[in-house]
Design a protein around this nucleic acid. Structure first.
Lengths: 259, 259
DNA sequence: CGGGACTTTGAGCTTTCTCAACGATGGTGG
DNA sequence: CCACCATCGTTGAGAAAGCTCAAAGTCCCG
């Protein structure tokens, strides 16, 4: 069972399925993802088919194979998306943060499970209702196409990681891309960055196609090599100065082959 | 260098960039993918921004990192999509056949390379022109969203394969899904199926995150176990009767964990 | 203070990779 | 028509990366 991690004053669970009108203006995700595609005016239509829900850390939001009844927009918190094999092996296909749109499916069933890593707030859209809104605002569909395209690019990058990178390279690639998306500073190229990791080593292992032991050993190795530093395993500092001295771990992370 | 494999009388290379009006009616892909979304009437608009091109086996169609200028619809043949690392390691993220739509990109650059496996015919759409057609026929955008969603589902399945399956499981998963899409018979569950593979063992290894040697050993192992049979390495028979006796290789290929 | 979840480290093992050799196949030029 | 060559596929032996099993340390929370 996942330890509960409170990261914000959560909306009480009683708000689940609440018919209360949405307060999009105050939403953390107002200017990201799907909701950013519409004006405040048009957003009211979207809000009309939305419900705000809360999912506590460790709880399941979507179960692989279930009928796909809703779309979700993550307004606060972190979730993990994964697929499992019958014997329990698990592959996390992505970690999603604030603003992420969720729930695209083919054939009417979800092809993945989703669980909250931290306490999470989401907007939930009824599938049929949202499709109607799409017809009225085709820009939403284009936005979703962009979302899906982005995810495909990420998925391909992750396939490269899973199929062809070493354990050390996988961890460095993960930390680098996580820093780019969630790091404390924006001048990502040269300054040290403090990275807060909402997920534990087990999640990381299942995301990187490794075991927890190998993830842990890789973190230790990178610390020894001066690539990263950390006391708390959930709070890692990327030491960018390192790149000049020993670029080996960074070399082959995401450059195309040019013959 | 890739050996050239002729699978049909190819359109001569002189047709490349030809301004000849499209003959969509005769196209192998008329009733698949993008083109199936429109009536014959509307298809003329789409055809107005399309060119038919030919890419010979082994030739490059798209280079990772290049400016994304076109979309493609594969009307005949097979191509491989892949990403590469600076040192030459390669991950094939997909094999695409007739009817497949290709070229979705973010940030104006292709995030992958594409090469013809067999001699290939494609419809090429100018990017800007196709976007205009989208505005006129929003159904195309919805079709593309479906295409992208399908690819995401496949990508997630492949991540599970790359991150968590054994070599033997990877080969079986590949053969099974290839059979489902391209096999000779439609009653896929019980009858033996003859599978024609357009790609070689190197491609297969780069798709499955293995080496050619391991792929080869896995094929041999599966043959010894009576799961498959083959003389020609490009033509494999899936022996379905086997499943009843020794289901082990098939067990944990694509079932969700149900607790 | 005690228990549980998480992380780290070590030792030995297994799967897959690397390196090497050989066989099969198909196309080409003599 | 046949010999040659390049490419592809298979097999074997040894090496290595990462996994398994085990134990101990840390931290948080009750």
């Amino acid at each position: 069972m996942q330890k509960r991690i409170s990261i914000a004053a959560p909306i009480p669970p009683s708000h689940f399925n609440s018919p209360t009108p949405m307060q999009c203006g105050a939403c953390h995700a107002r200017h990201i993802g799907l909701c950013d595609a519409l004006s405040n005016e048009d957003l009211r239509v979207l809000a009309g088919v939305a419900q705000r829900i809360v999912v506590l850390a460790g709880k399941t939001l979507i179960e692989e194979g279930d009928t796909a009844t809703h779309y979700y927009d993550l307004s606060h918190g972190n979730i993990r998306i994964f697929k499992s094999l019958a014997d329990g092996r698990r592959q996390i296909t992505g970690f999603m943060g604030t603003g992420h749109f969720l729930g695209l499916a083919v054939s009417g069933n979800y092809a993945f499970s989703a669980e909250a890593i931290t306490d999470t707030q989401l907007c939930r859209f009824d599938r049929a209702a949202l499709l109607k809104v799409f017809t009225r605002f085709p820009v939403l569909e284009r936005t979703l196409l962009n979302v899906a395209t982005h995810e495909m690019v990420n998925a391909h990058e992750q396939m490269l990681l899973l199929g062809r990178k070493t354990a050390l390279e996988r961890v460095v690639s993960f930390l680098t891309s996580w820093a780019d998306q969630n790091g404390s500073r924006q001048n990502t190229q040269h300054e040290n960055m403090i990275i807060e990791l909402p997920m534990n080593r087990v999640d990381l292992a299942d995301y990187l196609g490794l075991t927890t032991e190998t993830v842990s050993r890789s973190f230790s190795q990178l610390k020894r090599d001066g690539v990263i530093d950390f006391e708390d395993p959930r709070s890692v500092t990327l030491l960018r100065a390192h790149q000049a001295r020993k670029p080996s771990h960074f070399d082959s992370t995401h450059h195309a082959l040019r013959v």
